[in-house]
């Protein structure tokens, strides 16, 4: 075997090695992410109960969804949560900048540990806890107000259609996303320290510094976090499912929950209809993601 041939065969082998490395991830993504997605698109044109009824209905599902006022109510509710969730990205951003400015490494480490705590209490526990706290008759909040002699401030909380959305948003208090925080922090720490020295000499105020240096430099990280917040707000419904089941009335029904309720546990269960809702949501989320990417350009 000539040396040249050996090199070529080695190169060939190397090529195959590349595939071997990425194949598992490609397969997992294809089978468990893409296939269900395409299947969902396919079935959104059917009336389908998952079993014996599978009737092609064309755009029938979409027509019905778009003419259902409940769906539109759910979209409006979703927009409310969407705006809240975007605004509530701020505490995490602020916390990460403050945390970054703590130069004492021990303290910084300790605070970082503290900020990771929300990840370690199961979300469902927080939701069930708040469900109890909000109860108007025997819950904690109204008792607290009573013990302060503020009975007139007592609320129905989840029972008040005007208030229930805010109650759900407040369950996330104080709105610190641990992974997002770590991503911001890593971003700040990776920057060249000369930037900070220059800023210190400038004598800029802490707020000016944040606005002119840190925040612009975190655009790329912000975009990454924004995408997950957007997708979560447009398509998520865990909170609504567990705490209010969409009520009272439709005041906390979001499109994801609307989809869920049409697929599972309803006497009129229709997976095709639910898939069509899913497809619409998917398109909305995609559109919003693309728009937001267009508006925020990251530094290269």
């Amino acid at each position: 075997m000539s040396a040249l041939a050996a090199v070529t065969s080695k190169k060939k082998a190397a090529r195959f090695v590349g595939y071997a490395f990425v194949l598992p991830a490609v397969l997992f993504t294809a089978i468990f992410d893409y296939f269900p997605m395409l299947d969902g698109i396919w079935h959104s044109f059917y009336r389908w109960n998952g079993n014996n009824i599978e009737i092609f209905v064309g755009l029938g599902n979409f027509k019905e969804i778009l003419s259902d006022s409940v769906f539109w109510t759910s979209v409006r509710n979703m927009l409310f949560f969407l705006v809240c969730n975007i605004v509530l990205m701020l505490p995490t951003l602020v916390a990460s900048i403050v945390l970054f400015r703590i130069k004492h490494s021990r303290w910084q480490y300790a605070y970082r540990v503290l900020m990771c705590i929300p990840m370690f209490i199961p979300g469902i526990v927080i939701m069930l806890l708040w469900q109890f706290l909000y109860n108007p008759q025997y819950g904690f909040l109204n008792q607290l107000l009573a013990s302060w002699g503020l009975e007139n401030l007592q609320q129905l909380w989840l029972g008040d259609p005007a208030m229930v959305k805010w109650c759900l948003v407040f369950i996330g208090f104080p709105w610190i996303g641990s992974i997002a925080l770590l991503i911001y922090l890593a971003g700040l720490q990776n920057l060249d320290s000369s930037i900070w020295d220059a800023a210190a000499i400038d004598g800029a105020s802490p707020l000016q510094r944040a606005l002119s240096i840190e925040i612009p430099l975190l655009k790329g990280q912000f975009k990454l976090n924004l995408i997950s917040v957007l997708a979560g707000a447009v398509t998520g419904y865990n909170l609504q499912l567990v705490v209010t089941n969409g009520g009272p009335g439709f005041s906390t029904t979001v499109p994801g929950l609307y989809m869920y309720q049409h697929a599972f546990g309803s006497v009129n269960a229709d997976y095709g209809y639910a898939s069509a809702v899913g497809l619409l949501l998917f398109l909305i989320a995609l559109l919003i993601s693309l728009l937001s990417m267009k508006f925020i350009r990251s530094e290269e």
Binding site: P136, Q137, L156, W157, L158, G159, G247, P248, G249
Partner: peptide, 8 residues
């Protein structure tokens, strides 16, 4: 009772 709509 008040808030009935939100409880099960």
């Amino acid at each position: 009772q008040q808030g009935w709509a939100a409880i099960n």
